[in-house]
C-alpha cells in the first residue's frame, strides 16, 4: 500500500510523458480485467445453459420416444407382454391406491408432529431430539426405507408386497417433508392471532384448531402436495419391497399386490434388451408421470401464491 502511494506520488512528480505512460498501462490493465470479467460472466452463464439444455433434451427425448404410443388405449388397457397391447391402467390404479394410503397417513402424522413440536413441546431435550431426528431422517437414502419396509411391513407384519406395505413405506419416507413444511407454516402464524383467541377465552386446543390451523392450511397443503408428488415418483423402496415384475391383475383392495407408474417404467426400461418397443412404453409412462407431477406442482404453486396470507 505504502509503495503504491510512493509510486503514485513519484509519478505525479515526474515528467508529463511518464504520467501518460502510467495512465495507458493502468488503462490497459483495467480493460484486461473487464475482459476477464465478461469472459467469466459468459462462462458461468453457460453452466445454467447446460442445466436448462439437459432438461430440454431430457423432455424432448422422452416425448419423441413416446409419440404414437401415448394414446387413450394405453391409459385404459392393462399390462401385456405384447407392446402393442400393453397399457398402464393397472399401474395408474396402483399409484392412486398407494396415494390413498400415503395422503391420510403422512398428512395426519406430519401435521400432528408439527403441531406438537411448534405448539406444545417445551424448549427442551425431547423436542430438539425429535427435530434432529427428523432432519437426519430426511437424508436417509430411499432404498434404506425400502429395507425397513421389507423387514417390518413385508415380513414382520406379513403384508408382503401389498399396496398397504408400499404405501406405509412411502409415507415414512416423505413424512419429514410434511413435518418441516407444516412447522414452517405454523411458525408463520403471528402470535397476536393466538393471543386474541386466548383473550376471548378459548382453550389452547380450540385456538390451534379454529385459529392457527386455518391460517396455516395453505402452507401445510403446499408441503403436503410436494411430499405426495415426491412419493408418486419414488421407485427404489417399492422395488426393494419385491413388487412382482409383470402382474396382469388389477388391484381391488389395499392388501392386493400391485404395480405403479415408476415401477412400470423401471421394468420396461430394464426389458428393452428383450423387446425394443418397451423403451417407447417406458417413455409414454414417463410422460404420464411427468404430467401428473407437473399438475400437482402447479396446484401447489397456485395455493402458495393465492391463499397464503402474509402478516
Amino acid at each position: 500500500m505504502e509503495n503504491q502511494m510512493k509510486a503514485v506520488i513519484s509519478h505525479s512528480a515526474g515528467t508529463h510523458s511518464q504520467k501518460d505512460r502510467h495512465f495507458t498501462t493502468n488503462r490497459k490493465k483495467i480493460i484486461q480485467r473487464v475482459r476477464w470479467n465478461n469472459f467469466f460472466r459468459r462462462l458461468f452463464s453457460l453452466s445454467t445453459v447446460f442445466a436448462i439444455g439437459a432438461l430440454v433434451i431430457l423432455l424432448f427425448q422422452v416425448w419423441t420416444d413416446s409419440v404414437g404410443w401415448l394414446n387413450p388405449g394405453f391409459l385404459t388397457r392393462n399390462l401385456s407382454i405384447f407392446p402393442e397391447k400393453a397399457g398402464i391402467y393397472g399401474a395408474i390404479l396402483g399409484t392412486v391406491y398407494l396415494m390413498l394410503v400415503v395422503i391420510p397417513v403422512t398428512i395426519l402424522l406430519g401435521v400432528a408432529t408439527a403441531i406438537y413440536l411448534e405448539e406444545y413441546a417445551q424448549k427442551g431435550s425431547i423436542a430438539s431430539f425429535i427435530r434432529t431426528n427428523i432432519t437426519n431422517l430426511a437424508s436417509v437414502p430411499s432404498v434404506i426405507f425400502g429395507l425397513l419396509g421389507l423387514a417390518v411391513f413385508g415380513r414382520l407384519l406379513n403384508l408382503g408386497s401389498s399396496i398397504l406395505a408400499g404405501g406405509l413405506t412411502l409415507s415414512l419416507l416423505v413424512l419429514p417433508i410434511v413435518v418441516v413444511a407444516a412447522q414452517e407454516a405454523l411458525r408463520a402464524v403471528p402470535g397476536f392471532l393466538r393471543e386474541g383467541s386466548y383473550a376471548m377465552g378459548a382453550s389452547k386446543w380450540t385456538t390451534i384448531w379454529r385459529v392457527v390451523l386455518p391460517v396455516a392450511l395453505p402452507g401445510i397443503l403446499t408441503g403436503g402436495i410436494l411430499a405426495v408428488s415426491r412419493a408418486i415418483g419414488e421407485t427404489a423402496p417399492l422395488v426393494v419391497l419385491g413388487i412382482p415384475t409383470l402382474i396382469m391383475r388389477i388391484p381391488k383392495s389395499l392388501s392386493d399386490d400391485f404395480t405403479a407408474l415408476p415401477i412400470q417404467i423401471y421394468y420396461w426400461t430394464l426389458d428393452t434388451v428383450l423387446t425394443k418397443e418397451y423403451a417407447n412404453l417406458a417413455a409414454a409412462t414417463i410422460v404420464v408421470l411427468l404430467i401428473v407431477l407437473f399438475m400437482m406442482n402447479s396446484v401447489a404453486i397456485v395455493i402458495r401464491n393465492k391463499y397464503q396470507r402474509r402478516f
Binding site: 421407485t235 427404489a236 417404467i265 423401471y266 426400461t269 417413455a283 408421470l289 411427468l290
Partner: peptide, 14 residues
C-alpha cells in the same frame, strides 16, 4: 423435482 427413475431411463436410452 424430476423422479430419479426418469433420469435412469434418460441415462440408459439416450
Amino acid at each position: 423435482g424430476i423422479p430419479t427413475i426418469v433420469y435412469g431411463f434418460f441415462a440408459y436410452s439416450f
